[in-house]
Nucleic acid binder design. Sequence first.
RNA 1: UCCUCAGUAGCUCAACGGCAGAGCGACCGGCUGUUAACCGGUAGGUUGCAGGUUCGAAUCCUGCCUGGGGAGCCA
Length: 464
Amino acid sequence: MEKVTVRRLIAEAENYAEQEITVDGWIRNNRDQKSFGFIALNDGTHFNTIQIVYEKDLLTNYDQVAAMRVGSAIKASGKLVLTPEARQPFEIKASQVQLVGDSPPDYPIQPKRHSREFLREVGHLRPRTNLFNAVFRVRSRLAFAIHQFFQDKGFVYLHSPIITANDAEGAGELFRVTTLDPKDPPLADDGSVDYSNDFFGKKTNLTVSGQLEAEVFALAFKDVYTFGPTFRAENSNTPRHAAEFWMIEPEIAFADLNDNMDLAEEMVKYLINEMLEKAETEMDFFNQFVDKGLKERLVHIVNSDFARITYSEAIEELKKSNQKFEYPVAWGNDLQTEHERCLTEKIYQKPVFVTGYPRDIKAFYMRLNDDQQTVAAMDLLVPGVGEIIGGSQREERADVLEQNMAYFNINKEDLWWYMELRRYGGVQHAGFGLGFERILMYLTGVSNIRDVIPFPRTVNSCEF
RNA sequence: UCCUCAGUAGCUCAACGGCAGAGCGACCGGCUGUUAACCGGUAGGUUGCAGGUUCGAAUCCUGCCUGGGGAGCCA
């Protein structure tokens, strides 16, 4: 008897009509009546369950089957019957149902509503629920779509290092990587820890960004992207931050800020289209149970041109809006979350690129504009999630970069190689960082980052 | 780190100074086509932890722990 996955059955049920088949899977629900019953079976290969009908007359172990509990693993054989008039397109009339792995009655995942908070506590079981099944299936597809987008454009995928010695980026708090004994580290004469005796012979940490390395490769391959884990030891307690997350960082050479925004906009639209098309079942589920306006909003995004405004214009718009803000709107101050939300959700009601931020609130590597006050930075703000992309045109002029580093107190000896990119064939280039989980949240409507990461790592929490 | 809300049955919640309760789930029974089935019944509690106030505390007070939301930082 042919063993078939649920995915295959759903794709081509007609081809199996009236045939005897076998399926393996886990019981999501089991309802028995006097002489027949129904099992909703999920085998993990598709978001949906299939229905197995069992009858007393056809089974030797009817009472046993009727008593099989939610969560149990079973092997079921029977004839596939098309049921076009019923809610499900087909079902399996069981000739045999065999218990493979029992699940006692204290199985925490029951056919009822569970809160996300509770499900986080059972992170080893939550992938078996509808929500997380959909989320992680989409996560997988989205990762693939990102590669597809860049690969189709000829970008080279760069594995930027996860352990690095550079801490000069100022992109966040670092996780130290060391093999020194924390109770008895070697000390230098001045009493500080002597990292020259550490594994790498210097201070090292987990990467907070692959950007600087991506620039190296962009100036060799023209168009590159990184896609990998990133670590920030920030003490942030919000639904949008995790200590370990994935980031996509394209870097393009012979390109300016406008090319950068074009790329970002095209990418976001591509990813939305891909998910709407390739993960239709899951997206319908999110639309129905997580966020009622999700699909409509995403389609709207795909069909709209993202707004592009300068920081100065943003400040003017915010002042004109007459909204009450907790933080004052003033040129020179960074945009607060409330300002960003107002811009993207109220004033423009679509994604907004904000460019030309004051130099003082941005990073040293961003290209200084001719006004000497602003830099060629860009943030992409989207409704609901806020900042999803941060990027810039990089400072390609060696002398200006050197001045910037002095201005921001960055040790140029540590970044000698970064400086040399400007000395040898330096060229204008740009790039951005996209938080993978942020866009996943945006695409699924799931509002807490802990629910789009398989095993989330956040301040004070590293379970499973 | 700051602000704020909440911790009561496996889960979601009610009771808000006077006998610890419901729905869902579990278990038992019923039901000839169910769809998170339906109907009837049974079991299930150190009310987050430690102190305090009170004749009496789930309820009021203090501290701690855990979780949610907001802010900062950022992706």
